[in-house]
Design a protein around this nucleic acid. Sequence first.
DNA 1: ATAGGTGATATAGCGACGCTAGCATAGCGG
DNA 2: CCGCTATGCTAGCGTCGCTATATCACCTAT
Lengths: 202, 202
Amino acid sequence: MPSNARILVMTTQTRRERERAQREQQIVAAARELAETEGWEAVTTRRLAAEIEYSQPVLYSHFKGKSAIMTAVAVQGFEELADEVRAARTAARGTRDALAAVATAYTDFARKRPALYDAMFTHAVDLSFASPNTPAHLRNGFDEILQAVEPLAADDDPGILTETFWASLHGLAMLERSGRLPADLRGHRLDLLIGRFAPEAT
Amino acid sequence: MPSNARILVMTTQTRRERERAQREQQIVAAARELAETEGWEAVTTRRLAAEIEYSQPVLYSHFKGKSAIMTAVAVQGFEELADEVRAARTAARGTRDALAAVATAYTDFARKRPALYDAMFTHAVDLSFASPNTPAHLRNGFDEILQAVEPLAADDDPGILTETFWASLHGLAMLERSGRLPADLRGHRLDLLIGRFAPEAT
DNA sequence: ATAGGTGATATAGCGACGCTAGCATAGCGG
DNA sequence: CCGCTATGCTAGCGTCGCTATATCACCTAT
């Protein structure tokens, strides 16, 4: 019977595709966990293969190469960063509070997930940005910051001001993480930055 | 004759030391040039050895490893960055102009020498910073920015404010270089940043 | 001038890396 | 039940940073 045969084929196909998708997620999860616990230099294709209990070449049937795996991890990171920034922003009351909450959430994310943040911004340069074909998850984080900055833009372009504020947060996160700024003054620096972008207590 | 012998030994010693120092500089220069023309991924120890026309192991009689060579390049970069920022600052008239000049000089440096800037901030994490034993060249650049920021500090701590401003410049430079901020709005972003740190036209 | 000693340089190789070619095998369709 | 497809494996290629060992040139002292 063709209909039964088709259904059978379909189900085994879907099962296989499901298993394939699961394994792909396993790879990404293993890469992320390994990077977060031992750093990206410990993430090798052999190590990843051992982690998912498959041989090394199967990675290349899922991803074009190691950098594609890192990019997949980065995409996960962008989703989570957007979530955390959104949560912080919506929980805040006033305009200035919202900006401070966003800034704190952002830098906290970078500090608490350094390997993930590295994948997003230091590696994975092939990820498109600020262009029409930018994936949605990549824009979401920016839009969250935009929401907090926009009320403070006054005569300035909100988008450009958001870019500037975002860059400041990124710079703070990067320099702090490499030990180039004293860690104990982190709160002071954030306060000063907020003060410059939201002068009056609103 | 012991005196003649000593003198002979000294001169050959000093000649050797001079040659050694020259070769060491050759290594650093080769690494820098190779990185600036083909990127750091093209800088391999074999490639460097070929460039200075010596065998690979001689590199390890000068430097502990490849990362030490990159650190040496980074130190050169810090010296030059400090020079350029100082030149820009001393050429400026008013307070706000000085801040703008410093900001432009800094981001221009990062944009025009991306490989050098990468060595300074993305690689070479082992370079000590913000600690008592920080080498002088590393502090000079910071002090230059401090000179421009200090008059604008008002009630805020000048050092912490400088750290914050510096981080903003660093973030702008990094995000622009990876294509995450549109290049054509670079001037706009700098203007907005300057406006936030030096509100009134002084 | 020459033998002895010392330091500097090169050859060769180690283990690990990202990645790929080619083979075996398991599971499907007819 | 047979043949095909495609999936995953073993093995290996070229390159990486780095090092152990050998060789050789040069300086010292007789």
